[in-house]
Design a binder for these strands. Structure first.
Lengths: 224, 224
DNA sequence: TTTTTTTGTCATATTATTGCCATAATTCAA
DNA sequence: TTGAATTATGGCAATAATATGACAAAAAAA
């Protein structure tokens, strides 16, 4: 879990950014001005800073310069669209990236992911482990005992739904609606066929499934 | 039983959301546009609102603003993927969460659960614990010492009746009438067979039942 | 385009569940 | 202790559901 400091005077924006980053498994702290930010930085350690340029008190650039005297922690700056030339000045002072307001929170999260990944290796949370199975939702791959399992994309969708709801019985329709889309045209018995194909790839003995089990009259469960 | 208002103009989506929420023990009402929603809200009380952004007539944001003038009921908004910047505007107007279309209904249910739990405390009483046994009436599963017990649906019905009336002697007919229906065709001695099958799955030593005991001349009890 | 892979459908084989019974084992009271 | 009553158990058959193999259609790759 990486720690992120958000320096932003508008509580509305601060809250949204925090919400999104938290959802992406980051631990956030918000500072509503530069002084508070610098104080927090003196006492705690963070993995990345999101820094608004326009703030009352000391502005973002001053804060940036001060931080850079002692640390090269990644800093993403938030700036208004008009101030294009700020970019240059910002970069030269050591900001790592810019996001122009108004921004999409998802976009911001994506950039944060990039930095965190660059510094700390693989980004977390796209990779989940369930027993011998490791699912990488970004790469859309599944490994069993460290061996990549060759799945088609439909097969991947089906197993991943079952894995993510492990030990929960899912009906064919729930699987379809979650793995594919609400307006899937196909027959719900197609799931049987997917299950057959998946079993042949993940089970030691597809005739006696250990993981992907049938619930007669109900659906399927991934037991782990 | 918590009440949820679904505001969505597409009947297909509305129906499916309703189906999933109902299965999770929520009482749903659907409104096909903002006007109807506001009318319903004036007359009834709900515990949570699911609100589509894109609707004919008044759009979701307008509805959101109107609701927020008088109420802080949790609101989850449904929005199309392209409209990312809507998120910002939505959050600042007081939506509690966003779900992007096309969404997984299971995912939506999970988020609803989170809010309902946060506000009303403990999650719905679908899960009950009796000694080492945990029964999930929504999933229709029973665990013993955290291990899922593989029961057929008839077996589940029988054990769950006995568990819910633990330490109470039930006659075969009481079991039949509660577990199945009043017009069960079968012979009441079938219960003996169910008991046999259940014991083999839940008892350490089915020959000397510790939990599911026989009351000679009367019926069966689940001792816990 | 052609070729290959993936996906969807179907008919048929296989299996699971349920209800039923015959027989064995147990209980309880005379 | 005995035997009548009651319950336990194993197995069978009917039914319903699932598994599977084969193939066609669709999609993706070459």
């Amino acid at each position: 879990m990486h720690k992120i400091l958000i320096v932003e005077d508008e509580p509305a924006i601060s809250r949204i950014v925090e919400k999104y980053l938290s959802k992406s498994n980051y631990e956030c702290t918000a500072a509503r001005d530069g002084f508070i930010a610098l104080e927090l930085l003196a006492k705690n350690s963070y993995d990345l800073i999101i820094l608004d340029v326009m703030m009352p008190g000391i502005d973002g650039f001053r804060v940036l310069e001060t931080i850079r005297e002692t640390s090269d922690i990644p800093i993403i700056m938030l700036t208004a669209r008009e101030l294009e030339e700020d970019r240059l000045s910002g970069f030269s002072k050591g900001a790592d990236d810019y996001v122009v307001k108004p921004f999409s929170p998802l976009e911001l999260v994506k950039r944060v992911d990039v930095f965190i990944k660059r510094i700390y290796g693989v980004d977390e949370d796209t990779i989940k482990t369930y027993g011998p199975f490791v699912i990488d939702s970004k790469e859309k791959t599944i490994k069993k005992n460290n061996e990549l399992i060759d799945l088609t994309s439909a097969e991947y969708s089906v197993v991943s739904v079952l894995l993510e709801h492990k030990n929960q019985i899912l009906t064919r329709n729930q699987i379809i609606e979650t793995a594919f889309s609400l307006d899937y045209e196909g027959y719900d018995r197609n799931i049987d066929t997917y299950i057959k194909r998946i079993r042949s790839k993940i089970e030691d003995d597809p005739k006696k499934p250990k993981y992907l089990q049938t619930k007669y009259g109900a659906g399927y469960v991934f037991i782990i």
